[in-house]
Design a protein around this nucleic acid. Sequence first.
DNA 1: GCGATCAGCAA
DNA 2: CATCGTGCTGATCGC
Length: 404
Amino acid sequence: MPLISVLAKMEMRGISLDTDILKDLSLRAGEELEVLSDEIYRLSGENFNINSPKQLGEILFEKLKLPGGSKTKTGYSTSSNVLEPLKDHYRIVSLVLDYREINKLKTTYLDVLPGLIDTFTGKLHTSFNQMITSTGRLSSSNPNLQNIPVRTEFGKLIRKAFKPSSEENILFATDYSQIELRILAHYSDSERLIKAFQDGRDIHSETARDIFELPSDAVIDSSMRRIAKTVNFGILYGISDFGLSRNLGIDRKEAKKYIESYFFKFPGVKDYIDRVILEARKNGYVTTISGRKRHLNRISDRNMNIRKGEERIAVNAPIQGSAADIIKLAMIQIDREIDDRKLKTGMVLQVHDELIFDIFPGEFDTVCRIVKTHMEKACKLGVPLIVEFKKGIDWYHMESFQVL
DNA sequence: GCGATCAGCAA
DNA sequence: CATCGTGCTGATCGC
């Protein structure tokens, strides 16, 4: 199972980066930061280092006496969780959050990536690490190309700099649709989950109907869907009611209610969780679909925090780890077929449930077929594995399309 | 110069 | 009684 050579090829191939785009964005970011910091200093009545949580906390919660201060032993927390609820009432908080976002993007991506371009190849070469994560996922470093921004509009602009290796080439991205929830459906054999996937339903809206006890034709508004999505996310990532309450900004009781009504509606999932925890206690480990083990030596620890933590891992590891196994299998097979057919197209990135290719002229249709086939057939589950496709002239301008 | 701490990005 | 998914990176701060 030689994935290593696939990764080596991806690393050596690298990806093209248009530094002019990043320089321009960095300039714009710098100007914006200037404006924001001036206004923050004016409202504070003094200059200080906005990047220092210590100084920022003292300004906000001592000098300006904003509510809700104090948090940790070292001082005030100024995390976005704390600041977010204050931003509609205090302009300075809103400015700080804007400042944080832009500064993060500037210092982590805009100003760093250009310096990492290899002087010989002219490309960006990440390292894909196989021996780091506890779940079997890959990690990426120097630079990490698995966390390039996508959620905010300004952040997403960074993706304009990621381009195919020539003007004639096309960037091609595929991703598994809800692979982890499909794996959960597979393992839990949950009737509702399986049915929803077989019918091609929107799984988060479906979950919303279930946890809010609404009829099957009920219209789901965005806030209900958001909650359901976070609940699904929480189940997969092995989060606790505490974690869920924090993510949703609700109290713990409320979060617990959502989780309980989820389990009431998806008893198969509850059974899966109980089963996998028992298995972990019996064997001291859990396994993924291809047999990778995650050892859980403290699953029966007398310290409840440790025990609960291990139990969350026991639930999550087979799901996240199996997803990692499946995409790795697909990568090996795709690479082999591209090689056999002597195509020039190459895989350039893997982002957990997503693969990015640099497609050469004339190879587009062939590569689409190859990738679709191997990704969808990498593993047979109790539900279909669905892959979604996008293409574009850069990583920003990506348009969905169908492959038949 | 190093490590601890805080913060925030992604799937 | 307070704690709370991972991995990667950058900035600050104290030693």
